[in-house]
Write a protein that binds this DNA or RNA. Structure first.
Lengths: 195, 195
DNA sequence: TTGCCGCCTTAACCTGGGTTAACCTCCGCC
DNA sequence: GGCGGAGGTTAACCCAGGTTAAGGCGGCAA
């Protein structure tokens, strides 16, 4: 087991025989990503994904009208990639940027497809990945529908305590769907209330 | 082919042999749902799903604090079910209610699992379903992050023209994440602007 | 040291949407 | 025919968050 982070991420998704782990590891390539460098930028082919070994990334969707929205943050052990674009086989509309010096374990989607053809366990993994992505998004939809910005902020920190101090506030704000000014205001409101 | 709606929904997800269609149809049960009656209510086991043959449904998430949010509408040919709860094998937190007299084609998830064990084509279908659900939610997330309520309204009608006149305004408002009052205001604003 | 830059905060002002409540209209039912 | 309820509209008022603009502050480079 050369990459515990990989194991940690994929093992809960179903049993994978030892020999398949080895095949997978042989296809992976370790890569360093400097702070502020991109794993993927808009326009790139969405033909690879990765597991984060070290560091934090932000996934930014760049819209046609120039707006930027933060879709997610990804830290150690999590999957990194423009998943929607991969599924649709279109160029990436997502920018994936390291917020810290980072290391990732890269797979080409093409290689993963080979894995799938070789053993059914990878098909199950792919399905579980799809299902988990769905569950995450549904949760987020629910939050937008029924929580205020302040409640979304609380939820965010409750669920991502490991991001404390590692992501700039402006990005948290963009993730919550508000401006950095509004976030600052909310925080000072909270401060006042609890003193 | 007894159920064209079923075919229409599943065929694009991958090739399915004739014999498997027959097995699937033999497991399905047609069911009528009256207007305002429920296909599923919160607390029910999420152990079945359906394809809509006729009518429109609304999927409402009932939260712990009593709030109601509209997650989606489903019309002819679309899949009906508490998908997130099915995946997690928990009781439904979703209420699925017919807005018109309706007919659906019901499957028990357990039976579908049998199909999956019998032929790999159903595994592919299940995966594509997961992926499509994800894409839909990601789209919606994007809309909340970067569009105003008015823009979300325009998008909604552009993408669901077949729901015109079939869903009450208050439900459209709840789907957009605003109140019916705000929706009414937005509409009169638009009216004024274009006259 | 100075000056600049990146990140955050604060304040002033504006706007969109929430809340409440009154009212309208259609429709079905007695 | 009258009544009541469901669904929609409008108005008044309030507040959260957007926008703009002016600092504050720590770090880094010249």
């Amino acid at each position: 087991m050369r990459f515990p982070k990989l194991y940690e991420q994929l093992a809960p998704l179903g049993p994978i025989p030892e020999s398949e782990w080895e095949r997978a590891e042989s296809l992976a390539r370790e890569q360093a990503v400097e702070r502020k460098a991109h794993f993927l930028r808009p326009g790139d082919a969405a033909d690879r994904f990765a597991v984060v070994l070290q560091g934090v990334f932000r996934l930014v969707r760049v819209s046609a009208r120039g707006g930027e929205t933060v879709k997610a943050f990804r830290a150690e052990g999590e999957l990194l990639g423009a998943y929607a674009e991969m599924l649709q086989r279109v160029a990436s509309m997502t920018s994936i940027e390291a917020l810290e010096p980072a290391r990732v374990l890269v797979f080409r989607t093409q290689d993963f497809q080979t894995l799938e053809e070789g053993h059914a366990c990878w098909v199950r993994v792919a399905r579980r990945v799809a299902e988990r992505h769905f569950l995450l998004k549904e949760k987020r939809e629910q939050e937008f529908l029924e929580l205020s910005a302040e409640e979304r902020l609380d939820t965010f920190w409750a669920e991502h305590p490991h991001l404390r101090g590692r992501v700039p506030q402006r990005d948290v704000a963009a993730y919550l769907g508000i401006t950095e000014v509004a976030l600052s205001r909310i925080m000072s409101r909270k401060r006042k209330r609890t003193e």
